[in-house]
Structures are given as C-alpha cells and as structure tokens.
Design a binder for these strands. Structure first.
Lengths: 203, 203
DNA sequence: GCTTGCACGTGACATTTGTCATCCCTCATT
DNA sequence: AATGAGGGATGACAAATGTCACGTGCAAGC
C-alpha cells in the first residue's frame, strides 16, 4: 500500500514540482497540495495521510505551527519539514514541534522520496549539512520576549508601535531591543533583525 | 529544429522543475542550467542558445543585469524573465534591459512553454496580472541616488556606514533617506526599505 | 534559604535619526 | 537667458533610538 502524502508550500511551482516528482514514485501517492499552513491539519485528517511535507516559511500559519497542529490532529501522521537553505535555527524548533525530518529543498528528488519513506517508517531524517550548521550556530540566544520584540520590530515600526503591539512600555521595548542587538552582534535594530532572520531565530 | 534554452535560477528545485517540465516539450531542448547570473551570457554563447529564462532575484549577478549581458553577448538570443510574484517594479526595468518577456513562476507549465515559444518567435510576452500591477503601482518614485542610498541602507547599517559606502557626506545621506521615506510613505528608514523592496524598486 | 535568570518597569543620558532651510553646481528644457 | 530638476553639501533643531543603572517580582536550581 502506498504512502499517502500531503504537500504544503506557498510557491506553486515548487509545490507542483514536488508533487510531480514524488508522485512518480510507485509507492507514494500525493493526496493533497496546499498553498499555506492553515488547512494542513484538516487535509491530513480528511485524506488520512501518512506523511505531511511542509515548507517552513509559509503565509498564514507557518510550517512549524502547522507541524504541531498536524501532530495534535493526527498523531499517526509523520511530518517532514523542507526548507530553502541555511536557517539552522528552525531545525530544533521543528523537531520540538513534532517533526520527524528536516531536509533542504535542493536535495535531489531521489533523496527526497527516500526521506519520505524513512519518516513513514518512523525513522528520523535530518540533512547532515543542516545538522552541522545547527550545532555550530546553536540555538537562538534570545529570550522569548526578546524574540517577540525583535519580530515585532522586523517590519520597520517605531518603538511606540512595538510597545503597543506587545503591550509593553516603551522603555522595556528599548531594553529588549538593546539586549537583542548585543546578543546578535548587530549595531542597529535593523541589523539585529537581519541577523536573527538569517539564523532562523525569528520564524 | 528545437528551441535551445538556458535556464538560470538560484533555487535548485525550481531550476530542476523548470528544466524537467520544459524539457518534456518536443520542441524545446534545455542546453544549460545555472544557479546564478554570472555565467549566463557565457553559457548562452557557448551553447548558441535561442532563449534564456532568467530569475530576477539571484545571487551574484541579478537577473536584470544578466539579461543585459545576454543581449550584449548574443543579440539574437531572446530573454524571458521569470519572477516569484508581485514586484511590479522589475517589469519595466527588465524590458529596458532587453528582455522580451516577463512571467510569474506559478503559471502552469503549458503556458510557460508557450511563453518560451512566443519569445523565440520574436513576440513579447507579459503576464497580464503583472502588467496591470505595474500600471497601478507605476515606476519607482525614487531618483537614482535615492535608490542607491536606500539600497545601501537595506542591510541595517548606520548613516556613517552608508555615507562611507556611497562616498557621500552623512548629511546628504540623511537627506536622501528622508526623501525616500517621504516618497515611499514609510515612517522609518526600515519601513521605507521594506516598501521599496516589496515594490521591486531596489534590486 | 539563597542565588540566578528572566520579565517588566523607570529615569537619565548621549547619540543617532529625521526634518528643514538654504546654499552651490550642472544639465536639459523652454 | 531663464527655469527647473537633480546631485551634493552644510548647519541647526526636534524627535527617536540606544545605553545604563537601578528597581521589582517570580520561578527554577543548588
């Protein structure tokens, strides 16, 4: 019996390519394709899927939250995360959210299919390059609030905006931003945002 | 005789998908695949390609510069730009750089193949959605220097950094940033950067 | 029980930004 | 010849930002 696979990726071309390539495998059947994370858990339940292949960066519900939702809604369904490169910070968080595997998008199709089979068998699959990066780059040095504030700062709003959206005093916001800048090594708020984004510390 | 096609896109999976899908067409032959813009012109010449399919956003040489390079090196080779959505600002610049067509990545494979054929025949192909967006969003309101300065600001450096990299006085940099913020409608430098990036005014 | 780390806050302070007015120079248009 | 737009610059000023010191309370760990 073939592996029932759900694919979610916001880029239609990538999604289509994944579906086409993996659909060619005799033991894999693509039962649903989604463009964002919101409907993934429902789709998994509806089609009683065995494996969900999720992009990390998606509009609406992000891949990691979607992974958690899938695990809650259908504990028997394994989750395989795919991402575009780098961003080692996502790895650990994805694993904590219940993902069984984590691979980068530009691995050859054969290996992607193999990864799907592995997670379906209950094994864990982690791209070795990504794992190494994850070890050297390590976890996010930011505390939860620091991360929240930095994320709120990432679209370019003022301290007042951030304070309102995070329900904090402006002074506190400035303190957190200052701490985030110190920990990331950025000399400005924008630089700190960029560094944190590049390392997958923001999501 | 089949159309000789060169494909350049930094995402391996997309590149592979494009090559696979278009390679299936009987009248199209994919003669080279590149991961960045630097070698495109050389590859076009080497394989005497008829059409080059270029992503706009690539590391190294960007798609628009690569398009110009191709036109210079092989005037008989048509250029078809592909992009990920939105960013209407790129359209006009791509056309000025000598591109014959501009389509978004998530158009169906059939239409992509058709677009390749059309540009090969010397016709122009422009995604209608993109064209409409381009008309409403219009050109970049930024002057050349304003764009340069904003681009230099886009990685989060201080005014002093920007001034050094652009060989301008700090006051002038602040003036340009101020003008850019006024024209984009951003309330901070970072917001202006974001808006300009979203509209494809920076590249 | 004591220390440590984090969340949250205040207030003061030096710097950095963003804004504006006002120059100069050049080049294209009229 | 005059006008206007853009590139470049200066200086002054208000507002925002970044830094620090110093508080409080709470929870976890030794």
């Amino acid at each position: 019996m073939s592996i029932r696979l759900v694919i979610a990726d916001d880029q239609a071309l990538v999604r289509g390519a994944l579906a086409a390539l993996l659909g060619l495998e005799p033991d894999i059947e693509v039962v649903a394709e989604l463009g964002d994370g919101t409907g993934v858990a429902a789709a998994v339940v509806e089609h009683s899927a065995d494996v969900a292949m999720l992009d990390v960066e998606m509009p609406g519900l992000d891949g990691i939250s979607a992974a958690a939702a899938v695990r809650r809604a259908a504990p028997s369904c394994r989750v395989l995360m795919v991402t575009t490169f780098g961003r080692p910070g996502y790895l650990k968080r994805a694993m904590l959210a219940g993902a069984s595997g984590f691979v980068v998008k530009d691995t050859p199709a054969r290996q992607l299919a193999e990864a799907v089979r592995r997670v379906h068998q209950g094994l864990r699959v982690v791209d070795p390059v990504l794992a190494a990066e994850s070890l050297t780059a390590g976890d996010s040095p930011l505390t939860e609030r620091e991360g929240e504030v930095l994320k709120a700062a990432s679209d370019g709003g003022t301290v007042a905006d951030i304070a309102k959206s995070a329900m904090l005093s402006e002074g506190t916001v400035r303190n957190y931003l200052s701490a985030a800048m110190a920990k990331t090594g950025g000399r400005t708020r924008a630089e700190a945002v960029r560094i944190a984004e590049d390392n997958g510390w923001l999501l």
